[in-house]
Simulated scan of single mutants.
Amino acid sequence: MKFVHNLVFLLISLVSYAHEGPSDVAKKAKSLKVMTYNIHHCNPPSAGSKIDVEAIARVITAEKPDLVALQEVDVNTERSGKGLNQAKELARLTGMNFFFSKAIDHQGGDYGVAVLSRFPILDSTRFILPIDPTIGGETRTIAAITVEPTKGKRMIFASTHLDLKEPNRLTQSELIIRHFGATDLPVILAGDFNAQTDSKVIQLFDQTFVRSCQSCAPTIPVKNPNRAIDFVMVKQGGSLKSTSTRVVDEQYASDHLPVVVELKLN
């Protein structure tokens, strides 16, 4: 009798599975919440020279992202405090892991980009983006980590901050595309691109990556924002697809508005 009962249960389960539609499968798909945030070295523009790491941490914690790309991060600089590693402190305050990528020396310390991750960081890479010596510019870098949000599903998450000069941005974009185009892993690229959606730079990225938004809400300045230059994008052909993009109306902590993106992992 027990065998018959188990057989009936198995048949019912198989019938239920057979009638499961595409929408049910979609509900089972893993999702990720990603944020990109230019944090202005944790200096609220309206607060003089004050450094307020806690304000940035509150913005991040309120959104509960899985992965965060940070730009304009200070480590042991005079303006932010010689003993303050902002990436490390933000990781502590948000309960996340971190990786910092130095771009330049600044006031006795380091300045660059970073990533935060709720997942263990399996690998991390820093690489320098090119600057044309004939026109000059500030050295920029990539902070890239490998994580495994779902067992057996590894991916790369990278933060960057492109140069102010378009010729440099184009060269930097070409290098980024070549670098991440060589991997078979899904790639999430996020940051301050210093370029608007109709620029040559973003059009170049659009050939290899898919932005989370096409008509993107402006991210700068924080009051009456009028242009979008902060983006999250995923490499084409991967298992990631954006389902929503939102610009957070947070006008105190930084001079950029943070962008929050929901991604579906197939």
Score class of each variant (00 low, 15 high):
210 V>F: 06
1 M>V: 15
198 D>S: 10
137 G>H: 08
157 F>A: 04
33 K>S: 13
109 G>A: 06
151 K>D: 11
181 G>Y: 08
107 Q>D: 14
162 L>C: 03
28 K>W: 00
31 S>A: 09
140 R>Q: 09
220 I>C: 07
17 Y>T: 11
138 E>M: 07
162 L>K: 02
95 G>I: 04
258 P>E: 14
86 Q>M: 03
255 D>P: 14
136 G>C: 11
120 P>W: 03
232 V>S: 09
48 G>H: 03
208 T>F: 03
69 A>R: 01
170 L>V: 13
51 I>M: 08
197 T>I: 13
30 K>F: 11
3 F>S: 06
116 L>R: 09
105 D>R: 04
129 L>I: 13
85 N>F: 01
116 L>E: 14
206 D>F: 00
219 T>D: 15
96 M>V: 05
126 R>V: 09
265 L>A: 05
204 L>F: 01
238 G>Y: 04
83 G>L: 01
121 I>C: 08
224 N>E: 15
149 P>D: 04
117 S>E: 13
140 R>N: 05
169 R>A: 06
243 T>I: 10
256 H>L: 05
229 I>V: 14
36 T>V: 12
149 P>H: 05
236 Q>H: 06
72 E>W: 01
143 A>K: 01
108 G>C: 06
143 A>V: 03
142 I>F: 07
26 A>N: 11
128 I>N: 11
246 R>Y: 02
136 G>T: 08
37 Y>N: 11
237 G>Q: 09
66 D>Q: 06
177 I>F: 03
189 L>P: 08
182 A>L: 07
31 S>D: 08
195 A>H: 10
248 V>L: 15
216 C>Q: 12
193 F>E: 15
88 K>Q: 14
244 S>C: 01
126 R>F: 00
152 G>Q: 07
4 V>I: 15
2 K>W: 07
51 I>T: 15
199 S>W: 07
189 L>Y: 08
58 R>K: 15
48 G>V: 00
22 P>A: 05
108 G>Q: 10
262 E>K: 12
67 L>R: 05
203 Q>C: 02
169 R>P: 11
53 V>P: 13
60 I>H: 05
74 D>L: 02
245 T>S: 14
179 H>I: 03
100 F>K: 14
180 F>H: 07
11 L>C: 14
244 S>I: 03
183 T>F: 03
249 D>C: 00
70 L>V: 02
27 K>P: 03
107 Q>K: 10
72 E>T: 01
266 N>S: 14
146 T>G: 00
170 L>S: 05
117 S>T: 03
199 S>D: 15
158 A>V: 05
119 F>G: 09
103 A>G: 10
117 S>P: 13
176 I>P: 13
96 M>A: 04
182 A>Q: 13
148 E>H: 07
17 Y>L: 15
34 V>P: 03
1 M>P: 14
59 V>G: 02
18 A>K: 08
126 R>I: 01
244 S>L: 02
39 I>F: 03
241 K>T: 15
172 Q>N: 06
78 E>T: 10
142 I>S: 10
71 Q>Y: 05
157 F>H: 08
246 R>N: 11
8 V>F: 12
114 A>V: 04
229 I>S: 11
247 V>K: 06
221 P>H: 04
40 H>N: 11
147 V>N: 07
251 Q>T: 15
87 A>V: 04
122 L>K: 14
178 R>C: 01
245 T>K: 09
80 S>I: 01
201 V>K: 06
75 V>D: 12
241 K>N: 10
24 D>A: 11
244 S>V: 04
